[in-house]
Each structure stands twice: as structure tokens, then as C-alpha cells.
Simulated assay, not measured.
Amino acid sequence: MTDTLTDRQTDRQADTVTLESLLRSSTELLAAAGVDSPRADAELLAAHVLGVSRGEVVAWAIAGRRLDPLQSVDLRRLSISRATRTPLQYLTGTTTFRSVELQVGHGVFLPRPETELVAGAAIDAARAVRPGPGEQDGHPLVVDLCTGSGAIAAAVATEVPGAMVHAVEADPEAAWWAAANLDPRGVALHVGDAATALPDLDGRADVVVSNPPYVPDGRIPTQAEARRDPGLALYGGGADGMRLPTVVAATAARLLRPGGTLVMEHDDTQGELVAGLLRRGGLFSDVQTQEDLNGRPRYTIAARTDGTMAR
């Protein structure tokens, strides 16, 4: 009887493999595929499969933790998908952006680290809004145009308590993900064209922020993962990519109150184009191009003047 029990335990252990051995094989696979951070990605995929943190995965690997056959198959399957350069976030279903965790997947643009700076500038501008005459508390009105996954709007709603946040997205597939991220945070999502969005808010917004499509036509992203992003979220229109940024600037001029702030991300080749666009017509002043963490001109901040838009 004892021998039979021992044999069963031995058979069960033979069906398992150590977490560390799976992490090593996954790391080798991802490295061969050219993934930038193969060990980190392997650990994050394991954390997703096991429902624990990456730190626990590291500790379990050191301790010799074994995985059952189903867990092993799941990790191998995800590692193979990652080796095809499917973005890690698509496989785990989540990504972190500033203070928020977002749901993401196929069909939505993945927020980048540089966009966290754009969101930060919008948050600072919203926090600086002061109560109007007769008001005790300021409740800044913020509009996020071309919201995509809802990353910027979600960060603003989380980090500026009391802010009234509206988000606009034209692509129904991206809007599905935006709804999942914004509805729980009390952000009003509007599915529609940024050019005609929110006429009821004309002249009332304190802050308009946008990370619009801006990649020039014909420029193919160099990173394999970036080529999985939907084209609607990438290409701004025209050889210079400025068609949609121009639309966003016009809508911002319509929505913002005098003194309100526009924050717009753009390509690092478009700094002077965006600045010139905003200075034309006298609708914006104090136009400032800002650099990302790599010292590249990546977003512009401007203040709405009290000038009148041409009709």
C-alpha cells in the first residue's frame, strides 16, 4: 500500500516541472525572438498565469516551486504568442498608466510612457483651476480628445478629485475598451468625431488634452509591437501627419474658455508645426513645446486667448 502511494506521488511529480525551468525556457525563446526584456516578460507572463505578483514569481522560482500541467501549458502558450511580438499587455489584458491600471487588448492603442507626461501636464493644469465668482470649490472641466483606451482621462479623474471629465473616441472598438476603463471612474465617454464633439461644452472647458493620431503617412513603426497598434490610432493624415492634430487644435479652441489650457502630444518632428498652428489666428498664446524623457520635443502646451474663432 505504501509503495503504491509513493508511486502515485512520484507519477504526479513527474507530470510537473519547476517554475524556474519554465522561466529559463521562456526567456530563451523570447530572447531569440528579439524581445527587449525576455526574463522580465517571462516573469510577468508567469505572474498572469499564476495570479500573483512578479515578486512572488521570483521568490517561488528560487524556492523550486513546481507548476501543474495546465499552468505549464498556459505559460508556454503565452510565451509563444509573445515570441511572435504580440504585445505583453495584450496577453495579460492590463497595463499600468501613472496611477491607474487599465484593461487593454487587441483593437486599442497601448499608452506609452511619454504620454504619462502629457497626462501629468493636463493634471497640473486642472489642479490649478480656481473657483469662479460665488463658488466655494473649483470643479475643473476636462476634455480628452481621441481618448483611445481612456488612459489620460482615467488618470485625470483619479488624480484630480472632483474634476468633471469627458472623453471622446471615434473608433467603436477602442471605445469598448475606453468604456471598461472610464465608466467605473465616472468619466463621460462620447463615441464620435473629435471635429464635432461636445458642442454643448463650447467655451466652457478648463483643459483640453489629446494624444491624437499623428504618425506621418508612410512611416512604419520600427518596433514590432507598435505595428500591432490599430492604424486608426497611429496615422494623423498627410505626409506630415498633421491633419488630425489640426482638427484637435480647432476643437480645443472651440471648447476652451479664455485662459483654458490645451495639452497635445505630437511626433518629435512636429514641434514647430504644432507651435505654428497654435499661434496662427491669435486663438492661443504662451505656446510651449515640451520634451519627453529622452529630450525629444513630444508635446505642446498653450493657453486659449479671448480671441474669436472665424465662422
Rank of each mutant, 00 (worst) to 15 (best):
A33N: 07
A224V: 04
A175T: 03
P161Y: 11
V118Y: 07
T147R: 12
S72I: 02
R204Y: 04
W177T: 01
R98T: 06
W176F: 07
D41R: 05
V49S: 11
V57Q: 14
S81G: 00
A122M: 07
G295R: 09
A126P: 04
V248P: 04
R85N: 03
A249H: 01
D36A: 15
L189D: 10
L22A: 04
G238E: 01
P38Q: 11
L244S: 00
T305D: 05
I301D: 01
T86E: 15
P140Q: 05
I80D: 05
A195L: 04
Q71K: 08
A157M: 10
A205L: 12
A239G: 01
M264H: 06
P258Q: 10
A47Y: 14
G55R: 13
V49C: 09
H48P: 02
A178D: 06
P172M: 03
L262P: 11
D137N: 01
E114D: 15
G271L: 05
P297A: 01
S25P: 01
G307R: 13
D292C: 05
A310E: 15
G150E: 13
E28M: 07
E265P: 06
Q223I: 03
R65H: 15
E159K: 09
A253P: 03
I123L: 14
T308E: 15
T261L: 12
V191N: 02
T147Q: 11
G203M: 10
G238T: 01
A226R: 13
S21T: 10
V58H: 12
T308A: 15
P69Y: 10
D200L: 11
L117C: 05
R227G: 08
A174R: 02
V156W: 13
A42R: 08
L201D: 13
T10F: 06
V209D: 15
A155H: 13
E43S: 11
A122G: 12
A249Y: 00
S81D: 15
V118W: 06
D171H: 03
L19M: 05
P161K: 08
E159G: 03
W176Q: 08
V191G: 01
D171E: 11
H166I: 00
R112E: 04
R8C: 03
G281Y: 12
R12A: 12
A253V: 06
G105C: 04
G282S: 10
L67Y: 08
F97C: 09
R204P: 05
P140L: 05
V274M: 11
V57G: 14
R298Q: 07
G203L: 06
V187M: 02
P212Y: 13
G281Q: 10
D15L: 14
G120A: 10
